[in-house]
Amino acid sequence: MDPFVVLVLCLSCLLLLSIWRQSSGRGKLPPGPTPLPVIGNILQIDIKDVSKSLTNLSKIYGPVFTLYFGLERMVVLHGYEVVKEALIDLGEEFSGRGHFPLAERANRGFGIVFSNGKRWKEIRRFSLMTLRNFGMGKRSIEDRVQEEARCLVEELRKTKASPCDPTFILGCAPCNVICSIIFQKRFDYKDQQFLNLMEKLNENIRIVSTPWIQICNNFPTIIDYFPGTHNKLLKNLAFMESDILEKVKEHQESMDINNPRDFIDCFLIKMEKEKQNQQSEFTIENLVITAADLLGAGTETTSTTLRYALLLLLKHPEVTAKVQEEIERVIGRNRSPCMQDRGHMPYTDAVVHEVQRYIDLIPTSLPHAVTCDVKFRNYLIPKGTTILTSLTSVLHDNKEFPNPEMFDPRHFLDEGGNFKKSNYFMPFSAGKRICVGEGLARMELFLFLTFILQNFNLKSLIDPKDLDTTPVVNGFASVPPFYQLCFIPV
Rank of each mutant, 00 (worst) to 15 (best):
P3F: 14
P3H: 06
F4T: 14
V6R: 02
V6A: 11
L9I: 15
C10H: 01
S18G: 15
I19P: 05
R21G: 11
R21T: 07
Q22P: 12
S23T: 13
S24I: 15
K28D: 12
P33V: 00
T34R: 15
I39A: 08
N41E: 01
I45E: 03
S51F: 03
S51M: 04
K52E: 07
L54M: 10
L54A: 04
L54H: 03
T55V: 11
G62Y: 00
P63T: 06
F69W: 14
E72D: 10
V75Y: 01
V75S: 00
V76P: 01
V76K: 01
V76M: 02
L77M: 09
G79S: 07
E81R: 08
V82T: 14
V83K: 02
K84V: 09
K84H: 12
E85N: 07
L87R: 02
I88V: 14
D89W: 05
E92N: 11
E92H: 07
E92F: 08
E93G: 08
E93D: 11
E93I: 13
S95W: 04
G96K: 06
F100T: 13
F110K: 12
K118E: 14
W120R: 03
W120Y: 05
K121H: 12
E122F: 08
E122I: 10
E122N: 10
R125C: 04
S127L: 15
T130Y: 15
N133G: 14
G137F: 11
R139S: 13
I141K: 05
V145H: 02
Q146E: 13
R150G: 09
R150D: 08
C151Q: 11
C151E: 13
E155I: 07
E155D: 06
L156W: 03
R157L: 13
R157T: 11
R157Q: 10
R157N: 09
K160R: 13
C164V: 15
F168T: 12
I169R: 05
C172T: 07
P174S: 14
I178V: 11
I182F: 05
Q184S: 15
Q184M: 13
Q184T: 14
K185N: 15
F187A: 07
D188V: 07
Y189L: 07
K190C: 09
K190I: 10
D191H: 06
Q192T: 12
Q193W: 15
F194L: 14
L195E: 13
N196A: 15
L197G: 03
L201E: 03
N202W: 11
N204M: 07
I207G: 05
I207T: 07
V208M: 14
V208S: 15
S209K: 12
S209I: 09
S209W: 08
T210A: 09
T210L: 09
Q214F: 07
Q214Y: 15
C216L: 15
C216E: 00
N217D: 06
N217P: 06
N217F: 09
F219T: 05
I223E: 05
I223A: 06
Y225R: 10
P227M: 07
P227Y: 08
T229C: 15
H230Q: 09
L233M: 09
L233S: 05
L234M: 12
K235D: 14
F239Q: 13
M240K: 01
M240T: 07
D243C: 15
I244M: 11
K249R: 10
H251I: 01
Q252N: 09
E253I: 12
S254N: 11
S254T: 15
M255Q: 06
D256I: 07
I257L: 10
N258P: 06
N259G: 07
N259T: 06
N259W: 06
F263W: 09
I264R: 01
D265T: 03
C266N: 11
F267T: 01
I269K: 09
M271Y: 13
E272V: 12
E274N: 11
K275V: 09
N277Q: 15
Q278F: 11
E281S: 12
E281Y: 13
F282T: 02
I284Q: 08
E285Y: 06
L287M: 07
T290D: 00
D293N: 07
L294I: 08
A297T: 06
T301Q: 06
S303K: 13
S303G: 11
T305C: 03
L306P: 01
R307D: 04
R307M: 08
A309G: 12
A309L: 07
L311Q: 04
L311D: 02
L313T: 02
P317G: 08
E318T: 12
E318G: 07
V319M: 08
E325C: 13
E326K: 01
V330K: 09
V330R: 08
I331S: 02
R333A: 15
R333E: 10
C338H: 09
C338I: 10
D341L: 05
R342D: 03
Y347E: 01
Y347S: 01
T348Y: 01
D349H: 09
D349G: 05
V351S: 03
H353I: 01
Q356G: 05
R357V: 00
R357G: 00
R357M: 00
R357P: 01
D360N: 14
I362Q: 10
P363Q: 03
T364P: 01
S365R: 03
S365D: 03
V370H: 00
T371F: 05
C372F: 07
D373E: 09
D373R: 05
D373P: 07
V374L: 12
V374D: 00
F376Q: 00
R377N: 06
R377F: 05
K383Y: 04
K383A: 10
K383P: 01
K383S: 10
I387D: 00
L388V: 15
L388N: 00
L391E: 00
L391I: 08
L391G: 03
V394W: 02
D397Y: 02
E400W: 03
F401N: 01
N403V: 11
H411W: 01
F412K: 00
F412Y: 04
D414F: 06
E415T: 10
G417W: 07
F419E: 02
S422G: 03
S422K: 03
N423Q: 12
N423C: 15
F425D: 10
M426Q: 00
F428Q: 02
S429Y: 02
S429G: 14
S429I: 02
A430L: 10
A430M: 12
C435T: 01
G437S: 03
G437V: 03
E438W: 06
L440N: 02
L440G: 02
L440F: 05
E444Q: 00
I452L: 11
N455E: 11
F456R: 03
N457P: 02
I462D: 14
D466P: 05
L467V: 11
D468R: 12
D468L: 10
T469Y: 09
P471D: 05
V473R: 15
N474C: 11
G475R: 14
F476A: 14
F476R: 09
P480V: 13
P481N: 09
P481R: 14
F482E: 15
Y483N: 03
L485D: 01
I488V: 14
I488H: 12
